[in-house]
Amino acid sequence: MDKLPDIVGSIPYLLEGAGYTVAITAVALAIGFCVGLPLALTRVYGDKLASSLAAAYSTALRGLPALVVLFILFYGLSSVISLPAFIAGCLALGVCSSAYQMELLRGAIQSVGPGQMMAARALGMPRLQAIAFIVLPQALRLAIPAWSNEAAVVLKDSSLVYAVGLAELLRRSQQVAARTYQPFLVYVLCAVIYFGLTFATNRSLDTVERAMRLPTPLEEMH
């Protein structure tokens, strides 16, 4: 246990790595959302061809391990373009997440009843307006719990970027473990930090969900 102060001393170094972890997660989730939402809309509202293509995209990307996608972007493209590990990581995780986000957003959009769209169209709203102002505001609220899950998954998957050498949390943990010869303690510490991050993510999204919640029926009606 004489190494304990050493380990404790390396916590700032590890937390810096955790910063990379959070950064990758945030960028990947954003990419996943920006790609996943249009795809989900295509899947629900598009014509047969577009909808099938979107479905195929989803099936293909959900059948590939994130690690393989990461390697394709990092090693596979290396002869054409050399992507830095951070970018490869964000893109790989983003692309994988887009398929899962497409599915969860699709579920949320479909659970906003068809009556909402009908009423909007009956007012003379064009389809796009109806989707943007009536369906999506409700769908996005409904999607928050599932999205919170996805955020946790991406956070955990960000550890895979270890395999392409990025100095994020896990890679740094490995360095500290090698330096202090205390792999067990260091990796457990690493796990604790990840746990903290996941916990914080879930909690903050819970808060967001509660803040966005629509008022429920009052106990007494007039």
């Binding site: 009423a119 169209r121 007012l123 003379g124 009536i134 629509l214």
Partner: peptide, 29 residues
């Protein structure tokens, strides 16, 4: 769409926009 502006429809299931207040529902159109 333009024609529908001149036809008002009231549904059996109301289909009020759940994310808008009563005022908001009337205003959005």
């Amino acid at each position: 769409n333009h024609i529908r502006e001149r036809v008002g429809m009231v549904f059996q299931d109301f289909n009020l926009f759940n994310h808008l207040t009563a005022l908001g529902n009337v205003m959005v159109g």
